[in-house]
Amino acid sequence: MRYAFAAWFLALGFTAAAAQSPVAPPVATKVAALSLIGDRLLVVGSTISTGSRIDKNAKTILPLATDEIDVATVLAFEKRANAVRPQLEVVLLRAKDPSIHQLQDDVVAGKRDFRELLSAVAPLARRAGATHLVLFAKSRGETKIDMGDGSIGTGYVDGVGFYVDRWLRKQQTHEGEAEVGILAPFAYFKAVVVDLDGLKIIGEEISHQAKALYPAANVREARDPWDYLSATEKVAALKTLSDQGVDRIAAKVLGRF
């Protein structure tokens, strides 16, 4: 019987000790937001299509000396997060290393794996004390330019840039109709939600937007659609699209936490 009581007291003591052991508080969620969509412009010139799905568009890469578009993208996300989840801590990141942007372009081209890109940017988020990362990365998709009453476009685009249709189209004006080309800014990106503990992808939301712009009356004499907007106006148009894209997907992204 003594042994039975001793065993009972030992068990009781062990249980009490276990109950008194300090329990580590749960780690608060801290989200790092990083955009890699705005390091360059992709300028696509349309060609006459014969029905083939082969992308024959003329493409030009124009490096951007400013990171305004990336900054605008993460700021738009932070604003939306503050409105929807005010208790969620969000830290904004920048990636200045050109090798990270080159790696992303290789991923879009199918030459590298997306996890390699995550491994390259994860240290930035971890140094900021983040538990999660929302990475805005370039996404490739079919060109679909919103014309208001339908869509046009051939081939594929990714990231941010402009689709230029130099073939004449009709635009209603106060004087009747004018024959003009089309300049269409586009923002094709995805928001990838990553748990930094093990680099686990826990969600992905895609935003593909492109909208045709016609020339204003004061630039209607422009010979080429590329000249419809000034350099400053081009960046502003792309920032507007990225803001709209973030706004469309932010609620679903925030629902992953």
Rank of each mutant, 00 (worst) to 15 (best):
K96N: 06
P98L: 11
S99H: 02
H101S: 08
Q104M: 14
Q104T: 09
D106L: 10
V107Q: 00
R112M: 05
F114Q: 04
F114R: 04
R115V: 01
E116W: 00
L118S: 08
S119D: 11
A120Y: 00
A122F: 00
P123G: 10
L124W: 05
L124R: 09
R127T: 14
R127A: 15
A128P: 00
A128M: 05
G129W: 08
G129T: 04
T131E: 04
H132N: 11
V134M: 03
L135R: 08
L135E: 05
S139C: 06
G141T: 09
K144L: 10
K144A: 14
I145Q: 04
I145P: 02
I145V: 15
G148P: 01
D149T: 13
G150K: 05
G150S: 09
I152D: 05
G153E: 08
T154M: 12
T154H: 12
V157P: 00
V157K: 02
D158P: 05
D158Q: 14
V160T: 13
V160R: 01
G161S: 15
Y163V: 13
Y163Q: 10
D165I: 07
R166D: 11
L168I: 07
L168C: 05
R169I: 06
R169K: 14
K170R: 14
Q172D: 09
H174Q: 14
H174T: 14
E177C: 02
E179G: 11
V180M: 15
V180I: 15
G181C: 12
I182K: 11
I182M: 12
I182V: 15
P185Q: 12
F186G: 08
A187D: 07
A187M: 10
A187H: 12
A187N: 08
F189K: 11
F189T: 05
A191L: 08
V192H: 03
D195A: 05
D195F: 01
L196A: 04
G198V: 07
K200S: 10
G203I: 04
E204Q: 15
E204I: 06
I206V: 13
S207N: 03
S207K: 01
S207W: 02
H208A: 03
Q209R: 14
A210K: 02
A210T: 10
L213T: 06
Y214V: 05
Y214N: 11
Y214G: 11
A216D: 11
A216N: 05
A217S: 09
N218V: 01
N218T: 03
N218H: 10
E221G: 10
A222S: 15
A222Q: 06
R223L: 14
R223K: 14
W226C: 00
W226G: 01
A231Y: 09
E233P: 04
K234W: 09
V235T: 15
V235H: 04
